[in-house]
């Protein structure tokens, strides 16, 4: 399917592309940043950008919010994406609060909230387990 990259198409799609940029920024923060809190911020960013994409689907040019006014000629935007996103926002904040609670606990037991350092500490613990096992094996024989 060929697409005319005319001005209409670009103006009609540029908003999507901008949402994509926002999403990607969020996603990048999540995967590339080592600070646990910042990852959560990144997740929020990512999700909010997705919410924007949803809301933009429901928009009708020249329409108004779907609160009925009684005027029969009024054009309303589609309420369904709004409902979905209301749910999604709540799910998002639920995840965020849980993630933050985990961060607090991690900080208490590891003393850091940097991914690298936590990985290192975990790795040390695994190594010490292996060494312990090896020692026991040599004691046996």
């Amino acid at each position: 399917m060929a697409i005319d990259f005319d001005i209409d198409f670009i103006l009609g799609h540029i908003n999507y592309w901008l949402f994509v940029i926002l999403m990607l920024t969020g996603l990048y923060i999540v995967v590339a940043r080592g600070n646990l809190l910042k990852k959560i911020v990144g997740l929020n960013l990512f999700q909010v950008a997705v919410f924007m994409l949803y809301i933009s689907m429901g928009k009708i040019g020249g329409g108004t919010a779907p609160i009925l006014t009684g005027n029969p000629d009024e054009v309303y935007s589609n309420p369904l994406p709004h409902v979905l996103i209301l749910t999604a926002i709540v799910v998002g904040i639920a995840t965020t609060s849980l993630g933050l609670a985990l961060i607090v606990r991690i900080n208490e037991s590891y003393g850091t909230i940097e991914e690298d350092e936590i990985l290192e500490l975990d790795h040390q613990k695994s190594q010490s387990e292996i060494i312990k096992v090896a020692k026991e094996a040599s004691n046996d024989s």
Partner: peptide, 8 residues
């Protein structure tokens, strides 16, 4: 404690 980082 590794449960925490695993959960995260």
């Amino acid at each position: 404690r590794r449960a925490l980082s695993a959960a995260y």
